[in-house]
Nucleic acid binder design. Structure first.
Length: 913
RNA sequence: GGGCGAUUAGCUCAGUUGGUUAGAGCGUCUGCCUUACACGCAGAAUGUCGCAGGUUCGAGUCCUGCAUCGCCCACCA
């Protein structure tokens, strides 16, 4: 016997364990229906599961379970990311806070700090693993991967070496985004621009007046730049030199003309500081100038060049520098309300100071790729390959509009700085000894080699994720094998790459998705995935981002799972979720889907437990033929088949929310509210065949619904499935299935004929029932006893149908239906229009005021006439028939006929009164 | 500055290639513990579909402009 209510918390972990024990998450190995693979975007190995993860897991699990249901050889590969900067910062901060070590790097040294990080990660990875399980994720844990595991680290080094030898990775002095707080570089994409109100200063610079918001960088400036077409400066020549009295004394400056200067801004003249500004750096490169001098140190303090300001913090020095310039009579004016944006680090939120440093880069514009797509023979740059694979449709991005942002991003893409000055991560496989340089997968032999202290950008290793995780770790341990060997000999790679879908948040399209395409096309010669499904952000009810800083607005997925179950949370996250759009989540929504789970549970309870075991014991049923089913049974089976078709279509079109909604409506509406209620009538029958057949249809419909629902709500469906076992023994054999729902195949129900005619008849029946219920409720207060309904006027076929279903009609509407000939005591008439039918129903209620009645009817008549006229005009219009589809014309004609009929009926009645 | 998206019931959102009287859930109101479910059943009320034009027999849906909100990108020092 099933419990009265479904309590998710009591069964979920148990069910998950059973799935794992049955190894249900591993690929079946049967590739007849094709293979399917998703690489799980690795959550950071730090931290807790948040709603972003939850949406990702829900969507991917639905895709995965659906693939399994369709019999595909399915793999969803889980893993975690070492999250270099985030993790290192966190561990360092913990050491400072908990162990009072002021400067852990200094005190402990590289090895010890790394040990602490590894300890920390081991612990938090275990946590996140558990949390991923709680969502019901059916990923294959036996293949769990981690960016820092040996096999992946090896691949990282292989790729570095390959790209270095191919001339794509190089080292050079470049302007980088330096984060003085974290003491590392940050990539362009890891920047955030924050609006800030500042002062904007105008200074005399020789004959010019220049504008700047950063006087503290200006010590070494010796170039002033204007726009080539600026009439105000037409008298000066490009390259002309002149003497300037500047902050720390007289200098010789040079004038440059460059179109990058905006003549409208400030005075149209500026000085450049290549060492601390990206635009200036590019301008210096363009005119082949020297790169100037470093003014600000890596610690964010002024250097010797600043003269007496040396060692000062920028913020503190700025006003003093301005003061000095003013004293020298160089300050022209100050604009106090200057609004601009400053760059801060996405991770640490520290102010970014551009600096020139020696860094490792990947060249994106160098034409070297051997990409074997439709462009064999051409030599393409990495950038071009990135564009081609999406433009030519090898990779499809959902929603499509993100193509544009993607292309735009690529257009502006500069060489990717891959080195980071932190310790946690893959160390750059480059060793030096004096002037010797060694680049290799393993350390060079011999003494005194020093390895580059920097590590690689986290995204370097994540960019390899779709395939580095499919390489057999045992093979990767063999140094004799080349990267090509590893790929060719790893069965998982051969079976599952390119992966089917990359499902992730649109916020990391550039960080990650684009880089996977870049690194995979180049190093493997394959696309990493066929489709990119980008989900949106989860927001609060009023559209705000959920953040840790305001815990009262944010929802903890783990709390919700505990309270409402993982299934409810999954549905709440997925219904209404369309690719690329944000969704709002709030507790009532989750509660609503919890209710649905309970509804499903109870409907199942009715189906499975409404008859005692003894009843089933005596029952031996053969599979009924189509004609044996009652019209209502045929109807529900037809609806079910149709829903299945639609759900499959939506899922294949990645419309996950729509598919879920469809099933929700079918189960709650068609199945529970109507079919089960209709069926109660059959179950009361004295004829065991009638009862058995009714039970059969309930079972079949429920079983198939459970299969369809399983990807969305795996726990409750599996829990119900468990109770199916002993009941199914009495059912025809084609329903017998695997003991676990997770491994069941969807299949399709045999011999179902969906009929639009039948659907129309049933919806007419439903509409009449609804309207009778309403009428009954209206009369409820006054009417005593039974209400008699007489079918007076009805289109022949439909009328026949309605009369044949009279028992159901009267049961569900709570009215007693009498035969057409039966006497009716009083004569108050109401009309019910239902689809293409007009019924007149008579109630034994007190006779109403005739005048009032007439007035009402008259009003109705006028409306009907208007609609009739409109309809006639429409059909009379040539364009209408010329352009509209036939079905519309037919419908319009039917509507017209009906209106004409109704009009006559009304006229007759008015006459009678 | 450039690009993208959103605007439909009190709230959160559906609305397929233009086509019957624009839908759902939550909330509200009314009546029900009808032996699957009160996490429920039955019923009701609520909409100038952001604004202004245009195309069309017909526009929530297509076009133009405007407004408000949100996001992304960008080198105005």
């Amino acid at each position: 016997m099933m419990d009265k209510a479904y309590v998710a918390g009591q069964v979920e972990s148990d069910i998950y364990r059973r799935w794992e024990e049955a190894k249900a998450f591993s690929p079946s190995g049967d590739t007849t229906a094709g293979s399917f693979c998703i690489s799980m975007p690795p959550p950071n190995a730090t931290g807790q599961l948040h709603l972003g993860h939850a949406v990702m897991l829900a969507i991917e699990d639905i895709m995965t379970r659906y693939a399994r249901l369709k019999g595909k050889n399915t793999l969803w590969l889980p893993g975690t990311d070492h999250a270099a900067i985030a993790t290192e910062t966190l561990v360092i901060r913990n050491l400072q806070k908990n162990e009072k070590i002021a400067d852990p790097r200094q005190t402990l040294g590289r090895e010890k700090v790394l040990e602490r990080i590894v300890d920390y990660i081991e612990h938090s990875r275990a946590t996140i693993r558990e949390q991923v399980r709680q969502m019901g994720s059916s990923c294959d844990w036996s293949r769990e991967s981690y960016t820092m595991q040996d096999s992946l680290s090896r691949v990282v080094r292989e790729v570095f070496v390959k790209m270095y030898r191919d001339g794509l990775i190089y080292r050079g002095p470049r302007l980088v985004n330096w984060d003085p707080k974290m003491q590392t570089t940050v990539s362009d994409d890891e920047l955030e621009h924050v609006e800030e109100k500042a002062k904007f200063y105008y200074f005399k610079f020789g004959p010019f007046t220049i504008g700047t918001a950063r006087p503290e960088t200006k010590f070494g400036d010796k170039y002033v730049v204007v726009h080539p077409d600026d009439a105000r400066y037409a008298q000066y020549q490009h390259g002309q030199t002149f003497a300037v009295e500047w902050i720390n004394g007289p200098i010789v400056a040079t004038l440059l003309k460059d179109a990058a200067v905006d003549p409208e801004f400030g005075t149209g003249a500026m000085t450049i500081t290549p060492w601390h500004d990206a635009v200036d750096f590019e301008m210096a490169e363009r005119h082949q100038l020297d790169r100037g001098q470093q003014v600000i140190g890596y610690d964010g303090k002024l250097l010797a060049l600043a003269g007496e300001f040396v060692g000062m913090d920028i913020q503190a020095a700025r006003p003093l520098i301005v003061e000095k310039l003013q004293a020298k009579g160089l300050l022209v004016k100050v604009d106090d309300h200057y609004l601009h944006k400053v760059a801060v680090s996405y991770r640490g939120k520290g102010m970014i100071e551009p600096q020139i440093r020696e860094q490792w880069f990947i060249a994106v514009n160098k034409p070297v790729s051997t990409w074997q797509g439709k462009w064999t023979g051409q030599s393409l740059s990495l950038k071009q390959v990135l564009q081609q694979v999406v433009r030519e449709g090898d990779i499809r991005i959902l929603p499509k509009r993100f193509d544009k942002t993607y292309f735009h991003w690529i257009d502006n893409l500069r060489d990717w700085c891959i080195s980071r000055q932190i310790w946690w991560g893959h160390r750059i496989p480059v060793w030096t000894r004096g002037s010797e340089v060694f680049v290799g997968v393993n350390a060079p032999a011999g003494e005194a080699w020093l390895q580059d202290p920097d590590t690689l950008d986290t995204w370097f290793s994540s960019a390899l994720w779709t395939w580095s995780t499919l390489i057999d770790p045992a093979l990767a341990a063999d140094p004799a094998l080349s990267l090509t060997d590893l790929l060719q000999r790893s069965p998982d790679f051969q079976t599952f790459h390119p992966t089917t879908v990359m499902e992730t948040g649109y916020d990391i399209l550039f960080f990650w998705v684009a880089r996977m395409i870049l690194m995979t096309t180049y190093n493997v010669g394959q696309i990493p995935f066929e489709t990119v499904y980008l989900h949106g952000l989860v927001r609060t009810r009023d559209g705000k981002k959920m953040s840790k800083s305001s815990p009262e607005t944010s929802i903890d997925p783990l709390d919700m799972i505990q309270k409402y179950g993982a299934d409810a949370l999954r549905l709440a996250l997925v219904v209404g979720q369309t690719p690329g759009n944000d969704t709002k989540l709030y507790e009532e929504k989750i509660a609503g889907y919890r209710n649905f789970c309970n509804k499903l549970w109870n409907a199942s309870r009715f189906v499975l437990d409404s008859k005692p075991d003894a009843f089933y014991a005596g029952l031996k049923l053969v599979q009924p033929e189509w004609k044996d089913f009652t019209p209502l049974q045929q109807w529900i089976l037809g609806e079910l088949a149709q829903v299945q078709k639609k759900v499959e279509k939506r899922l294949e079109a990645s419309k996950i929310g729509d598919a879920a909604q469809l099933l929700y409506d079918f189960v709650w509406g068609d199945f529970c509210d109507w079919f089960i209620e209709f069926t109660k009538q059959d179950l009361r029958s004295a004829d065991p065949v009638v009862v058995a057949r009714a039970q059969y249809v309930l079972m079949v419909t429920l079983a198939q619904s459970l299969k369809l629902l399983h990807p969305f709500v795996p726990f409750v469906t599996e829990a119900i499935w468990e109770h199916f076992g002993h009941r199914l023994q009495t059912m025809p054999t084609d329903l017998v299935h695997s003991p676990l729902l997770i491994t069941a195949k969807l299949g399709s129900l045999p011999d179902i004929k969906t009929s639009t005619k039948l659907q129309q008849k049933v919806s007419a029946l439903q509409m009449i029932i609804s309207q009778l219920r309403e009428k009954k409720q209206q009369l409820g207060a006054t009417a005593k006893g039974q209400i008699y309904v007489k079918v007076v006027e009805v289109e022949a076929v439909l009328g026949e149908f309605l009369l044949s279903q009279a028992a159901y009609l009267s049961a569900l509407a709570g009215v007693l239906l009498v035969a057409a000939e039966a006497k009716v005591e009083t004569n108050r008439a109401i009309k019910i229009s239902a689809g293409t039918v007009v019924l007149e129903l008579l109630f034994n209620e007190e006779s109403a005021d005739a005048g009032q009645q007439k007035q009402k009817l008259q009003a109705e008549l006028t409306e009907v006439e208007q609609r009739r006229v409109h309809s006639e005009q429409l059909l009379g219009n040539v364009n209408f028939t010329g352009r509209a589809p036939e079905a519309v014309v037919a419908a319009e004609q039917a509507k017209l006929e009906q209106l004409q009929q109704l009009q006559m009926l009304l006229q007759e009645q008015i006459k009678k009164l």
